[in-house]
Design a protein around this nucleic acid. Structure first.
Lengths: 203, 203, 203, 203
DNA sequence: GATGAATGAGCATTCATTCAT
DNA sequence: GATGAATGAATGCTCATTCAT
């Protein structure tokens, strides 16, 4: 990461206390999981009093929901910006996978929380994260759709299924890495995985 | 259903009260998720007293763990038996995917519980289901390994990654179906998905 | 109290654990008031665990509501039975006041809780005790109404106002006694108060 | 309202911020009751910050206590001034009841707060409002006492009991009105109630 | 084995009060 | 004086687990 990027990152760093609390929530949830974590744990990790949490978030669930919202928002901007400058089809797939691993690879905590909890079924949580998930999966739809339109991928491809292939594979690779001891490097899988995905979708 | 099938079903049906409790656990967990379900809920669903649960399972966690163990055991027998009679490579892949969707497709409840909770991070649960998961993923390793050995799949294939591609894709397709309204038919995805997976792994 | 009364009292004593908890609630609420009392206080007084309270009452509020319901039910039976055997007008008034003081006079705790909390405005509580209160005030309506019909009380009397005179006076006398040190004897006020009430309502 | 009255009202209006806060407290407490109201609610209603409340009142309880003190002080002045110019006995009773209903009738909020909370048993509150209550009941004592001395009321009258008759009746009439939908006019009860009270105390 | 009442540790959440700005 | 974010003790309620019957 060059100095410029560093500066950018510094600027992008959480500024408010709300962001600091979310950061603490990531640390705590990634360690014990959402359900085994208490609000008091998050508060302690954040270095604030329990009650302070509730000045920033209405309910414990909102910690998780907001966490999804903010991180996926950044993810989306990054991905869409990248995709805009890439030609549809294989180039986009490789770029997409690369950025995916880049994003989640640099924050194992976030990766763990996200990949463990995006299947949460408790209504309040599910409904809260659903909008985030929809746009998240939407980017992958874009990759497949534009690849087909550009004639790079099989026009007979089932759009939904192809998207599920991509998201499922990425999901599995990331969570396997996130739950492992971390000795592996996530990015190492980018090239071979991209290759398989492209071959799977070629005409 | 003809009488014979009935008899077969009856034989396959859970026999003991422990099995009946697990069945109830599936029903309850699949509805509200493990964490939002109480032992009392399961007992009521099973038509027994709360205390009875503890004559068959030591802890609430064991309901989930045992449920994984028993269902995946049946799954493994089914898959391995099938794979034994299929030629490595594409035929095995198609058979494997078909059986996978067959098994999970006929019991949405089990599918929901399994696919939502196999990522559980609470130590007690995680350690409890890990053996089941390992053998579960092991079958997929077998499919890839034997396919490569038979020369049907790219010998350069990263074994782990190929397995993750398969399991991730299946995982995603099944959970998407299990969490949806259920109007889709899971099996419809078998053929096209098998095709993509095979293409991804071909030399 | 003669043996017979003792036996009756024994039979009337709370039998279930629910009744025992209510008894404890009376003791605690009468000491500190409902709002300053905790469910744990009641549990400790009742000699049970906190959770046990919730096997018998859904919410803390229900302790108060149920307490009103049960005691006023007994009160009503007593009053109505008495009134049935008395001639309308002054005799009923004297009997009514006498029984009122008798009931509340023998249980200062109940008197305190009732007279302090019947004005509670929290919606859940208010709505919960309202049915009890309505029938409670209904008995007084009966006394006035029948007295007027029998020609013993002024036919021009405003029914509501006359009832309010009675209930207000009794209310005040009882709470003043209940909140005092208890050296006074409630029943001593029965005769003079009845006299004033009757004079107030005479034609 | 003529200009003069306006001026008088203006003079009587709360001047400082402390008075404004009390006014807000009345609004809030009368709506949800003291216990269900938060200091933040009062602050919001008063249009000040939470902390500001504590520049004027030491504790939440003091809001209630001070509210009692100030309103009853005005009440006392009004009543005593009135009584001074009336002849003891029936005239004073009628004047007293009239002014009582006038005072509480023009501010339902105050009426609600006062009549719901004067029985508060929490030590801090109880002790805080007791002085106010004593002088409040003292005026009624005066009415009875002077009426007896003037020979208008039964010399055999139990002073305390007669006072309780009056205060209880007024209390009941006012709270019934204050907790009702407010379609009734409090003053309508003044004449008939005075009549009953006087008859009750006549020799 | 079956029952379900009893237990009490545990937790999310509230809110009176403080205090740095 | 005014502000309102921060505090953390307090509490209603839940629920896994036990155990006397």
């Amino acid at each position: 990461m060059d100095p410029e990027a560093k500066a950018t990152a510094a600027q992008a760093e959480p500024v408010g206390k709300g962001a600091a609390i979310l950061k603490a929530a990531v640390a705590v949830f990634s360690m014990h999981g959402y359900h085994a974590s208490t609000v008091a744990d998050v508060a302690k990790e954040a270095g604030v009093a329990t009650g302070t949490i509730y000045n920033y978030f209405e309910r414990k669930e909102d910690l998780l929901i907001e966490l999804f919202r903010r991180y996926l928002e950044r993810y989306l901007v990054l991905q869409n910006t990248g995709l805009d400058s890439e030609s549809p089809g294989e180039e986009q797939v490789r770029g997409f996978v690369h950025r995916h691993f880049e994003v989640f690879g640099e924050e194992r905590g976030v990766a763990r929380v996200f990949h463990v909890h995006w299947r949460e079924v408790q209504p309040l949580i599910r409904e809260g994260i659903l909008p985030s998930l929809r746009t998240f999966f939407g980017v992958m739809d874009r990759v497949v759709r534009e690849g087909i339109q550009a004639g790079e991928f099989d026009p007979e491809l089932n759009l939904r299924l192809a998207r599920q292939l991509i998201s499922g594979a990425l999901d599995e690779v990331v969570i396997s890495w996130a739950l492992s001891d971390g000795s592996r490097v996530l990015m190492d899988s980018a090239e071979p995985l991209s290759g398989m995905l492209c071959r799977a979708m070629r005409p």
